[in-house]
């Protein structure tokens, strides 16, 4: 069972929301869609789910062309950013609705929902309304609803964005246990690149409705194909030196180090981040960020340097990576 997206596009009037999208997601593989707000991440998920009409291209799921099938016929399990739980129904009734519509018998419904509630550890919350649940519990109910569908593909639309950072970190292993281990294709939309790197096997970076690069998190970080990706992936942001001869040289903040000789600079600000520190530097090459351990002593008249192998080069005009 694989998900294949070929040259997918959606336009509203004259404006293309997403275009020329090509993506292949294998069974048990999780692909994260990342990109700035409004780049078309959620629109792509809606196209795959069948919630919006496709203007061009094809969606092939399990070797069947589902491009123009209705949402109900696609066997898609989707978790929404807002969880989309029905506020007037109990947790049990929320989970039961889909099964009832699909004609599952009452006894079987009861059994399957009980088993699912145990799986998501909410067996004692079956009869409460969603408003009485915590954010994490609501997310698990939304996941349970998607799992009960037993879908061919899982679509997760920023499922953890409403949770605080600590809870997000705690729920990551749970998300892996519940969804990623099911050996189905998973597309996970997130604006949190740490989450994408932690969960996804591959990351697709979207910009202005187009996929710029699909690669493993490691590859994306070390070999970004465009300046946009280099800037978007990795925090603190990559340093871009002044362009020379139509070429921009970029260096990651952790690749910079203090040296006896190198670029003279002045420290303008320092952020203490626990295990590391982030220094803001003013240099003849422009504004720079340097990330290093808190154990590093900061010289009085600092000079910074980096290995040539850590440099990334991009064409000034197109933003594409140069060899």
């Amino acid at each position: 069972m694989t998900l294949q997206i070929q040259n997918l596009g959606r336009s509203v009037g004259q404006h293309w929301i997403v275009r020329h999208l090509n993506l292949h997601v294998e069974d048990g593989e999780c692909v994260a869609l990342v990109g700035p707000s409004g780049c078309g991440k959620s629109s792509t998920l809606r196209l795959i789910a069948g919630l919006d009409p496709v203007s061009e291209g094809e969606i092939i799921l399990n070797e069947a062309n589902v491009t123009h099938s209705s949402a109900a016929k696609r066997a898609v399990g989707m978790v929404f950013q807002s969880y989309a739980l029905l506020p007037h129904l109990s947790v049990f009734a929320n989970l039961e609705l889909g099964l009832r519509v699909r004609g599952v018998r009452p006894f079987d419904r009861q059994q399957r929902i009980q088993a699912m509630l145990e799986l998501v550890q909410l067996q004692d919350r079956a009869n409460v309304l969603p408003a009485e649940l915590s954010g994490g519990q609501r997310q698990r109910v939304a996941l349970a609803r998607a799992l009960l569908r037993d879908p061919d593909v899982y679509l997760l639309d920023e499922p953890m964005s409403n949770l605080d950072a600590q809870l997000r970190e705690e729920l990551r292993p749970e998300l892996r246990r519940l969804v990623l281990d099911r050996q189905k294709p998973v597309i996970h939309v997130t604006h949190d690149q740490h989450e994408a790197m932690a969960i996804a096997d591959r990351i697709a970076v979207l910009h202005s409705g187009k996929i710029q690069q699909v690669a493993t998190p490691e590859d994306l970080y070390h070999h970004p194909e465009t300046l946009f990706i280099a800037k978007f992936i990795g925090r603190p942001q990559i340093n871009c030196l002044r362009p020379k001869n139509g070429v921009i040289c970029a260096v990651r903040p952790e690749s910079l180090f203090f040296a006896k000789e190198g670029l003279p600079c002045k420290i303008t600000a320092r952020e203490w981040l626990g295990s590391s520190q982030l220094l803001y530097l003013d240099s003849p090459e422009g504004f720079l960020r340097l990330s290093c351990s808190t154990a590093v002593d900061i010289p009085e008249a600092p000079h910074v340097s980096w290995d040539v192998s850590d440099e990334h080069h991009f064409a000034l005009e197109s933003g594409h990576r140069l060899p």
């Binding site: 029905l86 609705l97 519509v101 569908r149």
Partner: peptide, 12 residues
């Protein structure tokens, strides 16, 4: 709108 979208996916 997600409430109705979720219901569509459930087959309602």
């Amino acid at each position: 709108p997600e409430l109705e979208d979720a219901a569509k996916l459930e087959g309602l």
